[in-house]
Simulated scan of single mutants.
Amino acid sequence: MEERIVIAAYKPKEGQSEALKLLMKEHLSTLKSQNYVTDRASIIMESLDGTIIEVFEWVSAHAMQQAHSNPVVLEMWGKYAEVCDYIPVGNVAETSQLFSAFTPLN
Rank of each mutant, 00 (worst) to 15 (best):
N91I: 11
C84Y: 11
I53Q: 05
E18H: 01
A61Q: 12
G90L: 09
E26R: 00
L22N: 14
D39M: 12
R40Y: 06
H27G: 14
G90F: 14
N35L: 08
A8T: 01
E3G: 08
V55T: 03
I44T: 10
K25Y: 02
E75G: 05
Y86Q: 08
K13R: 15
E82L: 07
G78M: 02
M64W: 07
E94V: 00
V59A: 12
F56D: 00
Q66W: 02
V6T: 08
L28F: 04
F102H: 01
H68T: 15
E75V: 10
E54I: 12
E75Q: 12
F56E: 02
T30F: 07
I52E: 07
V59E: 11
Y86E: 08
S69W: 03
F56K: 00
M1R: 09
A101I: 14
I44H: 03
K13T: 06
D49E: 12
R40N: 10
T103D: 06
G50M: 09
S29G: 02
P104N: 03
G50L: 11
D49Y: 10
E82V: 13
I52N: 07
Q34W: 01
Y80T: 02
G78K: 04
W58R: 04
S47P: 07
T103H: 14
M64E: 13
S42K: 02
R4N: 15
Q97V: 07
E94H: 00
Y80Q: 01
S33M: 03
Q97R: 14
L28T: 13
L23H: 00
E26G: 00
E94T: 01
I44S: 06
I5A: 12
M64T: 05
E54K: 06
E14Q: 13
E54N: 05
L48I: 14
